[in-house]
């Protein structure tokens, strides 16, 4: 098969760029730990309310400006442990999100942050984020879950 000289250069350049790109992505993932949420811990989806920590959703302080936020999603609600669905965290706090669903697949997206994961029945989803700016972030569902899908929300408020 004959290839035009320019085409060889073009493909060589393209393939080299691709390789560099994949290596960068790989180093970021496996050396720097920037992995997508892949917790792979399971639980019984019908016994969520009886399984720790989901038997007691909400914010817990676990260290110096470090928190764990446990959230139980269900159609069409996020149980974040407060009645007004507002969770306040201090600026600079590191929060470990811990979430699951009691029924169908839901999304777990905190607008304006990189917290974005799928909640699937039987699995626990986890992700950690540090909040360095004050303000309100809306937690919302970005996977279709039924007629009330667009009504699921809560607020994470980062306070000074």
């Amino acid at each position: 098969m004959n290839m035009h000289k320019y085409e060889k250069i073009w493909l060589l350049f393209g393939t080299a760029t691709l390789l560099i790109f994949l290596i960068v992505v790989g180093i970021s993932a496996f050396y720097m730990g920037n992995q997508p949420p892949s917790c792979a811990v399971t639980l019984n989806p019908e016994k969520v309310h009886a399984t720790a920590p989901f038997d007691d959703p909400g914010l817990k302080k676990i260290g110096d400006n470090e928190y764990q936020l446990t959230v139980v999603a269900s159609a069409f609600n996020y149980d974040v442990g407060t009645d007004d669905k507002i969770v306040q965290i201090p600026k600079g706090a590191t929060v470990h999100f811990n979430a699951t669903t009691t029924d169908v697949v839901h999304g777990f997206e905190l607008a304006g942050t990189n917290v974005n994961m799928m909640l699937e029945p039987g699995y626990i989803s986890t992700y950690t984020n540090t909040f360095n700016k004050a303000g309100k972030h809306t937690l919302l569902c970005n996977e279709y879950c039924g007629t009330g899908h667009h009504l699921m929300s809560a607020t994470i408020e980062v306070v000074e």
């Binding site: 892949s38 799928m118 989803s125």
Partner: peptide, 23 residues
């Protein structure tokens, strides 16, 4: 990629295969 039940290594491996369509 954002699902809890799949190992990150295999996610990355399929990402690499995905990008081979660049060629």
């Amino acid at each position: 990629l954002t699902e809890p039940g799949i190992d990150p290594f295999w996610k990355y491996l399929q990402v690499v295969l995905t990008f081979l369509v660049v060629i």
